[in-house]
Amino acid sequence: MIVLAVINGTARDLWYKNYTGELAARQISTITLLLLFAVYIWFLIKKYPPTTSEQAITIGTLWLILTLVFEFGMGYMSGKTWPQMLEDYNIVKGRLWVLIPIWVAFAPYLFFRILKE
């Protein structure tokens, strides 16, 4: 998922951010990453299905923790402050990034339930 996120962010910065502006580019980038993650997570859950709902929830919880550790760890290492890092999670200001960790946490269970039927 890290590779998908890096490719997605690179595409945003190199291709369309100059045309859309920062906020719209981040919104587009968030939506495209949600879609990329959906395909990737669907594939993983189909190929390596959890055996129980609890296992699917555990996978989502672990991915959530790893996502947040990576996100804030990289932000900290690059010298960002906590307010700067939390800015992307402010949905009131049009920042949609909070949907990424929510999706990463919820998608394994959702796809497990869909594929189980």
Results as ranks from 00 to 15, higher is better:
Y48G: 00
P108I: 12
K47M: 04
I28S: 01
E54P: 01
W82A: 04
T32C: 12
L96G: 05
I102V: 15
L44D: 03
F72S: 01
L110M: 12
M85V: 09
V92S: 15
A25F: 03
S29N: 11
L35Y: 11
Y40R: 00
A107P: 04
I57D: 02
V98D: 13
I45A: 00
L35I: 07
L44F: 05
W82E: 05
Q55V: 11
I57C: 12
A5C: 13
P83F: 04
N18V: 15
A56R: 01
I65G: 00
W82G: 05
Y109A: 06
A56E: 03
L96R: 07
N8K: 04
E87W: 08
I102T: 12
W63L: 07
V69F: 11
E71C: 01
I41V: 06
P101I: 09
R26K: 13
L86R: 01
L44N: 01
R113D: 05
G21S: 06
N18H: 15
W63I: 02
W42H: 03
I2G: 13
L36A: 01
T67H: 04
A105S: 09
Q84P: 04
R26H: 11
F43M: 12
S29T: 14
L44G: 01
K80E: 12
I59T: 05
L64M: 13
N90T: 13
N90G: 02
Y16K: 02
L115C: 04
A105T: 11
Q27V: 15
T10A: 12
Y89I: 15
I7D: 08
Y48R: 03
K93R: 15
L115T: 07
M77E: 15
T58H: 13
K47P: 00
F106Q: 10
P108Y: 07
I7S: 12
L62P: 07
T30G: 05
L34V: 11
K46M: 08
Y40G: 01
L110E: 10
I45R: 00
A24M: 14
V69S: 08
L66M: 15
I45V: 04
G79C: 07
K46C: 02
Q27Y: 14
E117N: 09
E87Q: 04
F72Y: 10
E22W: 10
G94C: 09
